[in-house]
């Protein structure tokens, strides 16, 4: 698509220059909103990854927490304490630090469940589209049935079932895998439908026929040849799916069936703060809430841009 060889043709432009000059990168550079969203997302991800270095306090170190410091308002208010920028919660934990650590869990669950849904969805879509026939009918019928139920209901249900299988302590210890499983399984359908659609188109193209003629194994054809050509839309769904997964995790945690208060994600922090809202302690839930909203909005903006940038009709 992009022919970067200059008329002189003797010196090949450097790799960095070719990336910079690629049309995707060009459309990225042109959209200030997208660049802003990318910067915000990157900062938030880095802040979460390096939470243990950046955070001024360790909210999980019971030795450093003093109940005397509890329910302090943000530092810039009259009663604020300079040590706690965004105030403290009911246990005297620094809100700013808990947000950083909480974002780590939110992002971890978000990324992991997106990967899980993508893997299930891509596999189902590839098989349905490539094999066709009865296999296709069964897979897509399951997808249709699941699609008629809201994802939050399915996620809640899987979470509930896992509570039945595991006993309470084991469930609390396994809560991150359980959340990843419930959010991941509840979101695979979109990937499957998209991948199936593109696979149906790719299946009849000459390169696939050629691969079949030389006797490659169908699984090899699907993974090596078809998959790379259907990845564009998957990338868009995955980006928007990340925002959605983070929201779903926050919702489950807020409802009290997600991360426990001992291992709070952003949703858990909002839940904790909600109980104190009536006493006027707004900062406990508002700051994690704002962080969540900014994170999700930034990822959504990136996804929106990617969708338009990869859409051939809009070029």
């Amino acid at each position: 698509m992009t022919d970067t060889t200059s008329p002189k043709a003797a010196t090949r432009p450097s790799l960095l220059y070719r990336i910079w000059d690629h049309e995707l990168c060009y459309s990225f550079r042109k959209s200030h909103l997208t660049v802003g969203a990318a910067v915000v997302t990157l900062i938030l991800i880095l802040a979460a990854v390096f939470a243990n270095i950046i955070a001024p306090h360790n909210p999980f170190d019971t030795a450093s927490i003093d109940l005397m410091d509890s329910e302090l308002p943000p530092a810039w208010t009259v009663d604020g304490d300079q040590r706690f920028l965004l105030g403290t919660d009911n246990l005297g934990r620094d809100i700013y630090s808990t947000i950083l650590y909480g974002m780590r869990i939110s992002l971890l669950v978000g990324f992991a469940s997106v990967i899980l849904s993508a893997v299930i969805g891509i596999a189902a879509g590839l098989i349905a589209g490539y094999v066709g026939g009865k296999v296709d009918a069964v897979i897509m019928r399951i997808a249709d049935i699941q699609l008629s139920f809201p994802t939050i209901l399915i996620a809640l249900l899987i979470d509930g079932i896992s509570r039945g299988i595991l006993d309470r302590e084991l469930h609390d210890a396994m809560i991150i895998p359980v959340l990843v499983l419930s959010i991941g399984i509840s979101n695979w359908v979109q990937y499957a439908r998209t991948v199936r659609g593109s696979t149906l188109v790719e299946r009849n193209k000459e390169y696939v026929q050629a691969a079949r003629v030389i006797g490659l194994h169908p699984i090899l054809i699907m993974i090596r040849h078809v998959l790379p050509n259907v990845m564009g839309p998957v990338l868009v769904i995955a980006t928007l799916g990340l925002a959605f997964a983070i929201l779903t995790e926050a919702t489950l945690s807020f409802l009290g069936v997600g991360m426990p208060p001992t291992q709070p994600s952003l949703g858990t922090l909002i839940r904790i703060g909600n109980d104190y809202l009536f006493s006027g302690l707004w900062w406990i839930s508002i700051f994690p809430g704002a962080t969540l909203a900014i994170l999700v909005l930034a990822v959504n903006l990136l996804g929106d841009w990617l969708r338009d940038a990869l859409n051939p009709k809009l070029r």
Binding site: T251, I270, V296
Partner: peptide, 12 residues
Amino acid sequence: VGISIPTFLIGI
């Protein structure tokens, strides 16, 4: 922006 703010947060 409305889509990015979770329902429970809007409620709060």
